[in-house]
Nucleic acid binder design. Structure first.
Lengths: 135, 135
DNA sequence: GTTAGTAGTATACAAAAGGTTAGTAGTAAC
DNA sequence: GTTACTACTAACCTTTTGTATACTACTAAC
């Protein structure tokens, strides 16, 4: 596929606009990708997942997991034999198809953080809006 | 870099979590990537940009452009010689660094749309929540 | 002179997303 | 018996995001 450098055609532009729109529609928002990344470590239980991500409330995690399950990214395993009931979440094969997206985002974020830090060291103190998340 | 397939280590997980978090911090949200894609066609004026993206209000576009400018993704050219004043927006070189991210998202979105369409044709009618944006 | 276009801003409001607190029903440790 | 853990859910609140309408000040076409 042709890249997204300068000067794509209007047709290509609209096609990219639609495709990226579709992607953001299902994996957009603050938490979905983080949940998928966290489940890349292996299957996890609800509270374990909440702790590993950090900053997400139970309510939001619960809602996001439902949506991820609906879209086929996550599978919910309930072990009814144990008491109390144990629920484990795991990534599906379809979530693996996001590998390139996550890889590209992760690589870019790493580069961006390094760039911001360097700029800060050189004394280019900008407004906190331009900065990255805290260490 | 190691991919994001099954079974990454906790350390790798946290690193990805931070990097993807940094990326989402600056390019997350409904509009930022769309604006950058639209500017890949070439420099555009305010209303032209609004029309090309579709669905974005002037207020939101104005706010998003300010943020994108602060983060160095977009450059604002004002031609004071003309009357009325002409303002053109263009992508910076730094926005080009998002090439891989946009490419991966676009490719994934295209694949996802095809998958959903195929599932719909096979009669797997699911709730509209799982679907893609309208044609 | 009316209409439309330029690049926005002001105001007000609505909707969506996310956060806070508390609570359930059961178990198990101290 | 008190505390804590499990996997959530309900009610409520705040923040973010988006929408609608109107307005500026100037130009150009009809």
């Amino acid at each position: 596929m042709k890249g997204l450098g300068q000067n794509i055609t209007p047709k290509e532009c609209n096609s990219h606009l639609q495709s990226v729109g579709d992607a953001l529609y299902v994996i957009g928002g603050k938490w979905k990708l983080r949940i998928i990344i966290s489940l890349s470590e292996g299957r996890k239980r609800f509270n374990e997942l909440q702790r590993s991500i950090g900053g997400i409330s139970a309510r939001v995690l619960s809602n996001e997991l439902k949506e991820l399950e609906m879209n086929g990214f996550v599978h919910r395993n309930v072990h009814t034999d144990a008491t109390p009931v144990i629920v484990e979440y795991e990534r599906t094969d379809y979530a693996d198809s996001l590998r390139d997206v996550l890889g590209a985002l992760s690589a870019w974020g790493k580069m961006h953080r390094a760039r911001i830090k360097k700029a800060a060291e050189l004394g280019h103190a900008k407004s906190s809006n331009t900065l990255i998340t805290q260490d």
